[in-house]
Design a protein around this nucleic acid. Structure first.
Lengths: 250, 250
DNA sequence: CTCCATTATTTGTATATACAAGATATCTAT
DNA sequence: ATAGATATCTTGTATATACAAATAATGGAG
């Protein structure tokens, strides 16, 4: 006897959930994927199968599947079908924030120092990265991350001052009650750029390497007009960075 | 003469965008909000107005508005209408990662130490937070954040070991080539819990405060079965944390 | 004027239908 | 058997319609 058909497994859960039909479909599929019953690559029931099998309209099934696509649970291809998505190992969020988590996972100490924080106006490239006009007010910040006492990453942030209002470098001490906004970029395909670059003299000094040693550079494209931070990361070379081997693999 | 009606401003942009109708509506509104022409609180055209003014069906307008709701650009209330949302100052992402950014914005040094990292099995509460079974394998980590040299936050992470496979505390040094997954929770209403709690003896010691001093505690509900990390943060009391005054305001 | 019932407006969900476009399977002519 | 045409399946988008539920506006009775 073959394994339970996907549409039947889906219906079994669908029948025991309360709420709107589209949410019941979505939750059922999320559970099947989370529980590992549906592995990455599995072909999901088509919308037409859900119409017959679950007794919903195609638009209801379509809405559920679209939400699952946005959530990264499934991938859809017109003409082919819907498939359980590969787990995204390195998300945009991950890229933004958590070198600390990597270091932590290896039982090392993590430490980050703010090297520089200046108020300035956007260059053409910075403007493009942030999705603002050239010469728009920005902040530039440089943060150096350490693993134990070894510098491992130099992060340069460009911050949209318009969306981080009330700030001026001189005012930073005074206006402690204000805050700025930081949003995640959506986790979409093609959002990463990874290059091998040679560090500048300053960068090499901070990372305690030579200028002839190529570093991995990671950029994240901003989500037009929605982010206020565009970060570029320069990774110190060496086997400490096996962890980043999958960057850009997709 | 009054200002341009929202529906007219919307149509002006809508007419000059390529692509599917729902995306043209969404992009137009995103631009109007991003440019500041539509301020927080403004009442957007109703779906019926878009049907008349843009020549689309109500379901197309509904889809655009639903996506904007999910993106946090607008808020919708049945019977009342659609309004430009307040900028979310502290998003779920923010909550997850970036106390460093707060500190940075005030020109202070940021520093974080890993106090503890242990492999264990989930208690009932931990299991609920992570959306796993009780006794499921997890990691517990404790990270102490400093502003300059002052401890300001104690972060306790519960990490789903199933989704962070190949890890074992003893193996951490060996298996440096593996990595684990960290995803953002969606930024939705009601995802935050903020409480005033008294610190335990250990927590008070780490934060260099007395056990009688109430601290803000911040938790993030996990997104069922999708996150591998559930973080609880204990904030040191005092005026350094005006920044967090808006937590839970909604 | 105040209170209450009614009506209108607005969003949330669900369905049926239609066409477009990409991918695959099938059939046919050679 | 191969190549090309055709049909089928699948998802993407768009529309029209319907009912439910929450809110706001209106109107009438007192």
């Amino acid at each position: 006897m073959a394994a339970v058909k996907p549409i039947e497994a889906l219906k079994a859960l669908f029948d025991h959930i309360e709420g709107p039909a589209y949410a019941r479909i979505r939750q059922s599929i999320e559970q099947l994927v989370a529980d590992g019953e549906w592995q990455a690559g599995l072909t999901l029931p088509s919308e037409a199968e859900m119409v017959d099998g679950l007794g919903v309209s195609r638009m209801t099934a379509n809405r559920a599947m679209r939400e699952l696509t946005e959530a990264g649970v499934v991938e859809r291809h017109r003409g082919r079908g819907t498939f359980v998505a590969e787990q995204k190992v390195l998300s945009a969020l991950y890229e933004v924030h958590d070198i600390a988590a990597e270091v932590l996972a290896r039982g090392k100490q993590h430490h980050a120092d703010v090297i520089e924080l200046v108020s300035a106006h956007a260059t053409a490239e910075e403007a493009m990265r942030l999705g603002v006009m050239t010469h728009a007010p920005i902040f530039r910040s440089t943060v150096l991350h350490y693993e134990d006492s070894l510098p491992i990453q130099l992060e340069q942030r460009i911050i949209n001052a318009k969306l981080a209002p009330q700030y001026d470098q001189q005012d930073l001490q005074k206006h402690t009650a204000h805050r700025y906004l930081m949003k995640a970029a959506p986790m979409t395909e093609g959002e990463h750029l990874v290059e091998a670059v040679l560090p500048s003299t300053e960068e090499a000094t901070l990372l305690q390497i030579g200028t002839e040693q190529p570093c991995m550079q990671i950029r994240r494209r901003t989500w037009a007009n929605k982010d206020i931070v565009s970060a570029t990361r320069l990774l110190s070379p060496g086997n400490r960075f096996e962890l980043f081997g999958r960057f850009g693999a997709n």
